[in-house]
Deep mutational scan, measured.
Amino acid sequence: HSLRVHINGKDFEVHNADEHVIRALEELIRRGADADELKEFLERWKG
């Protein structure tokens, strides 16, 4: 899957995101994670 996440006016393109990554991202958003947390998660995932 390809996923586009809009954080703090920046678009993050997440390519080849598997279900696990997408679910983790949705969980963060549901918990009310702020932009920094989401960005950190995506950067860690992209490795």
Rank of each mutant, 00 (worst) to 15 (best):
G32K: 05
D18F: 04
H6M: 08
D36V: 08
N8F: 06
E37I: 08
A17F: 03
K46Y: 13
R44D: 06
D36I: 07
K46S: 14
I7D: 00
H20M: 11
L25T: 01
K39A: 14
L38E: 00
H20Q: 11
K10T: 09
D36N: 09
V21M: 12
F41V: 06
V5D: 01
R23E: 07
L38M: 07
V5H: 02
E37M: 11
F41C: 03
G32V: 02
F41R: 02
A24E: 11
E43R: 15
I22M: 07
H15M: 07
E43C: 12
L3M: 13
N16R: 05
L38Q: 01
H1T: 15
H1K: 14
R30T: 08
L28G: 01
E19D: 08
D11G: 05
F41D: 00
V14W: 03
I22R: 04
A33G: 06
V5T: 02
L42E: 01
F12R: 00
E43K: 14
V21R: 02
K10H: 07
L28N: 01
A33S: 07
G9M: 01
K10D: 04
E19M: 11
E13S: 05
G47L: 14
V21N: 02
F41K: 02
D36R: 08
H15R: 09
R31P: 01
L25A: 02
F12S: 00
K46L: 13
A17L: 08
E43T: 11
V21P: 01
I29F: 11
H1C: 15
E13I: 14
R31Y: 09
W45C: 02
E13W: 15
F12V: 06
A33V: 08
L25C: 02
A17W: 03
R44T: 13
K39N: 13
A17Q: 06
W45P: 02
E43G: 10
N16I: 07
E27Q: 13
D11F: 13
F41S: 03
E37V: 08
A33Q: 03
E19W: 12
L28A: 05
L38I: 10
E26K: 15
D36L: 08
E27T: 12
L28S: 01
V21L: 15
I29K: 02
N8C: 04
L3C: 11
R30Q: 08
A17G: 04
E40H: 09
W45K: 02
L3G: 04
H15C: 03
A33T: 07
K39V: 14
N8W: 04
E40F: 12
N16L: 06
E40L: 14
R4D: 06
E26H: 10
L38P: 00
S2W: 14
D11M: 15
E26R: 14
G9S: 01
V5E: 01
L25E: 00
R23N: 08
R4V: 15
H15P: 05
